[in-house]
Design a protein around this nucleic acid. Structure first.
Lengths: 298, 298
DNA sequence: CTTTTGGTATGCATAAACGCATGGATTGGT
DNA sequence: ACCAATCCATGCGTTTATGCATACCAAAAG
């Protein structure tokens, strides 16, 4: 029998702490209300009541924008800790959930989300109608620790120990352009022929440039005349004949408007990982989607 | 501008998490309701709703007692983390509170609470009527980190770095008994005369016995015929002539029913500390009470 | 200077949560 | 084996919180 505990210190309204946390992080009551799925007056009253309950002034209102008082900053630290724990709780709870009905959120690049995934998800819906899919399209990797997504498709092995990753296949990236544009380059057959070519790059031009230079391409930053963080935009530009795009051959080879540049040149290899959080990998429907994607993508 | 955060993971009802935490720790819905100051059906419904909300079964009901499921145990870890943060938040908020109206909780032994403190608190009430005092009487030291008390009176220096301690004075403990009982011992004048004496001990007889043995008293556990964890009970037993009690001379010398045993024997010295948490030492009325006690006890 | 946009307070009707009282059920003690 | 104590579930009346609509305000855009 453990000692009788004193709970008086935690009898304040925790939902008000939540309202305070989100308001402080988002910067306004309205934004907090949107984030929480509540009405703005509700959040305002909760924060107001929180200040009253604690006897502390949390926000100073400089005209329009809210700024934290020193007291508010001191408290925010602990509210953040509560929020972190709440995220963990939510994550573990989600992992323990074994209901096949519900939502699964997949984080993927726009190319995968827009081109490769749709037919796969269609079959998945057919097989398990109870599962609804939410696609989070983002250029940079979704934060699985914060559960911005349940499953993510990535091209690199995650370093976080709490994540589990499965290498589902090796993707091959090739060079594509319109036949017309390829002709203007003289239908090149080796890297050395591409010194004057224009490439449509992604945001992380640096890495891609480095890889290509190592492969013997005589190119510099100057060759990347257009850069975009969006694969679909990049692809549209390629199809307008504006340059060469580098893309997974599963996508490029099935598009009749473009052709390979240097068809026989060995492609760039990069891995495709399916990633999930260790805690929620127990979740039955999530595991189902994970395995389904794994076989469908392989 | 920081990245727009995703708050979907924390939009569950935090008060339900609180109900779950306290229920799990206390072991029953009724106990949790008492601890939280809520009605039992309320806590029951909150826990029920929490399970429904998360889609997880948290408790298994074996007849009467609730036991956590594995899922519940996994979640409890995070609920505890939320609770820890909540305690910290409450503590800091309390420290930021500079209102002179409100409650201050003092943790003290029953001897201090019942004998020395009452006149001091009376004067304090007179001087600052807005401050109401709550006395937590406990044999073992109140947990200041969990805010079971705001200020504690202790006889040892706390080791926790988050606590601040002020040595307010040195107390002197002497031996007391009724004149009649002292006479039966032959009005002893030195430790060696007390080999057959009976002592009314506190629970931690071991330490007291060790100290006295080192001082040359020819006594063993046998001499502590009666033991109690309560100073006032001990004192009442002494006044009934049942044996010798060891007590602060501020208390013993002001009681006409008892006399010193070995009046000229050097007393046992022990320090008196006033202890508070660093975070809440900023609190204005708490600081006032702290200083008031400090001067009143010195 | 006016307009527009994004944000905050107030009033009121509705919906949700709460407390009280009660009944059923289990454990522990005599 | 019974009784007392303790605990949990249900129903109902009341309190409380929430959402909607709206008015108000400040800052940026035209």
């Amino acid at each position: 029998m453990h000692k009788r505990m004193d709970w008086s210190a935690i009898t304040f309204d925790w939902n008000r702490a939540r309202a305070f946390l989100v308001t402080a992080e988002e910067g306004s009551l309205s934004a907090a209300a949107r984030a929480l799925g509540l009405a703005q007056p509700t959040v305002g009253r909760q924060v107001e009541a929180f200040q009253e309950e604690l006897g502390v002034v949390l926000f100073e209102r400089a005209g329009h924008s809210l700024t934290l008082t020193p007291a508010g900053q001191a408290l925010l630290e602990y509210a953040r800790a509560m929020g972190e724990a709440a995220v963990g709780l939510s994550r573990v709870a989600y992992g323990q959930n074994d209901d096949m009905h519900g939502r699964v959120t997949i984080g993927a690049s726009d190319a995968y989300a827009g081109i490769l995934l749709p037919p796969i998800l269609e079959k998945l819906q057919e097989q398990e109608p109870g599962i609804s899919i939410s696609l989070v399209v983002s250029n940079d990797a979704a934060d699985l620790l914060r559960r911005e997504a349940d499953i993510a498709i990535r091209n690199f092995q995650p370093k976080e120990p709490d994540l589990i990753a499965k290498r589902v296949r090796t993707a091959y990236a090739r060079f594509y352009a319109t036949p017309e544009y390829r002709a203007t380059l003289g239908d090149p057959t080796q890297p050395g022929d591409l010194g004057e070519a224009r490439f449509i790059g992604m945001d992380d031009t640096g890495t891609m440039l480095g890889i290509m230079q190592k492969m013997g391409f005589p190119i510099t930053t100057e060759n990347f005349t257009v850069t975009t963080g969006n694969f679909l935009v990049m692809w549209a530009l390629v199809k307008r004949g504006m340059g060469i795009g580098v893309l997974d051959d599963r996508i490029g080879d099935h598009d009749a408007e473009v052709v390979r540049v240097m068809p026989d040149f060995p492609p760039l290899e990069f891995p495709v990982y399916l990633v999930a959080h260790r805690d929620i990998y127990q979740n039955r429907r999530l595991r189902f989607v994970f395995d389904f994607l794994s076989t469908a993508l392989a």
